[in-house]
């Protein structure tokens, strides 16, 4: 049981490295799908003893939104706007990988004083979710295209869910559902905004979004 659990977690770490080192958009979207599936797997395993109808429902909604609808939407945005598949990094891919390793180290360091011993979860769950969160943040900062920023936001959200799911935090049903809905609508609105950006500027590089500034 525990071995599968650990295997999934290590897979999450490797996926993050894949994400920050890949130069194309499509693999990044695939990483997103895989992450969502793994997360649901982790959630199913933590709750295995006591699955109720509403947990099944939550899992179904989660998989449906994060592994199907959102990636499909992103792919559509890419196709519709004829976005080139290159990611246009501010930070090169090798440098990104090195930064990724540093980020992993930082996540381990941050989580050291926060002990999870009073819970059922292994201690290394926190660094993994923090690392996923940092990878998402790094994607937002270090890549030029607006769509990679949305991707980064979704990875961040996944990282936070990793933690919530592993801790078996079931917030009340309605809250959980509305959190999902909020994230969904946020990505939807960002998608619409990308559509407008590409129509207005004929590209979606965010480094040109720099008219409004004070320095």
């Amino acid at each position: 049981m525990n071995t599968i659990f650990n295997f999934l977690v290590i897979l999450l770490i490797l996926l993050n490295f894949r994400l920050i080192s890949s130069s194309r958009l499509t693999p990044c979207i695939h990483v997103l799908v895989l992450q969502a599936v793994i997360l649901s797997g982790v959630a199913w395993m933590t709750h295995q003893g006591h699955m109720s109808v509403h947990l099944y429902f939550m899992l179904a909604v989660n998989i449906f939104l994060k592994a199907a609808v959102l990636p499909w939407m992103l792919t559509r945005v890419v196709e519709k706007n004829i976005i080139s598949r290159e990611l246009d990094p501010f930070v090169g891919y090798t440098a990104s990988l090195i930064i990724g390793v540093v980020l992993l180290g930082i996540s381990v360091m941050i989580s050291r004083p926060l002990s999870l011993s009073h819970t059922l979860v292994e201690d290394f769950f926190l660094p993994v979710s923090l690392f996923t969160l940092f990878s998402g943040l790094f994607m937002i900062i270090a890549r030029k295209k607006a769509i990679t920023q949305v991707l980064g936001y979704m990875v961040m959200e996944n990282g936070i869910y990793t933690f919530g799911v592993a801790m078996a935090i079931h917030e009340p049903f309605i809250v959980e559902l509305s959190v999902l809905l909020d994230v969904f609508v946020a990505v939807l609105i960002m998608g619409v905004a990308i559509f407008h950006i590409s129509r207005e500027f004929n590209h979606i590089d965010t480094d040109r979004l720099s008219v409004l500034r004070d320095l």
Binding site: I140, A146, Y153, I189, M190, A193, I197, E200, L209
Partner: peptide, 10 residues
């Protein structure tokens, strides 16, 4: 305003 709203949401 598009730039502003993009920064705001993100």
């Amino acid at each position: 305003s598009l730039e502003a709203v993009w920064k705001y949401i993100l």
